[in-house]
Nucleic acid binder design. Structure first.
Lengths: 117, 117
DNA sequence: AGCATATGCTACGCTTTATGTAGCACGTCA
DNA sequence: TGACGTGCTACATAAAGCGTAGCATATGCT
């Protein structure tokens, strides 16, 4: 499969709008996870694989190729986020907070954040 | 397929950590896109479908079920983001800016943000 | 009433994507 | 030499996604 690129049609959008290319890229399995696992250190292929619950090397390699292609990840003595990759990470980090709130909300529901009936 | 939930094992992680459930949920095709398309107005099923480049109704319905299940989307006279859904959107909105920078970077590469050769 | 149109949604057959296991070629260090 | 770790690929199987068709209900019009 091809790596989504801004300025080109992608799966689900022919406009070439950059955001569509990005949503296509991030909406692939393991992509978000890989970025997440690289959040605070470079990892070798196998270390990364084990952090990602032993994803098949086929997939990991494909995702890494896409992420390198997009300039999000670099492979210089292990895999690490690039400058732009770190910027992208900034948008992903708050998800942890949201997820924790999500879990709390499920434990004691209907507590303010839900919609009124 | 089942909707990922915090506190339960999900695809690619058995720990039940909320962030893993969220990354599983968002890493499915069309999920990010649906949230994105609902960013500033409620849409009917068919309107949403047409915004998503005529995604198959099978998929849209499945994703909507997952998003409703997760409390991100509500279906009251069309589909719309809930309170938590809007909070989640806040993490996704900056992606547009990132994507635009991405596109600009590709137009004139090696301009500071790339890695040095 | 009769008819057109719009809605949300499901069935079903086919294609694309992901998974799991095995293993290769290379490098390092004893 | 041989035991290990590395990044990566092949290939068969399973899962997810896709496209088209169409149903049941609701609303509005004449």
């Amino acid at each position: 499969m091809t790596t989504p690129k801004p300025g080109h049609p992608v799966r689900g959008s022919t406009t070439g709008r950059p955001i569509m290319a990005l949503l296509d890229l991030l909406g692939r399995r393991w992509t978000l996870r890989v970025i997440w696992e690289l959040r605070d250190e470079a990892l070798t292929f196998r270390a990364l694989r084990s952090r990602c619950d032993d994803v098949s090397p086929t997939m990991l390699n494909r995702r890494l190729a896409e992420l390198r292609d997009a300039g999000i990840v670099a492979a210089e003595g292990g895999y690490a986020l690039t400058g732009p990759g770190l910027e992208l990470l900034q948008a992903i980090l708050p998800l942890q907070r949201w997820a924790d709130d999500w879990a709390a909300r499920r434990d004691r529901p209907a507590a303010g954040s839900g919609r009124a009936p």
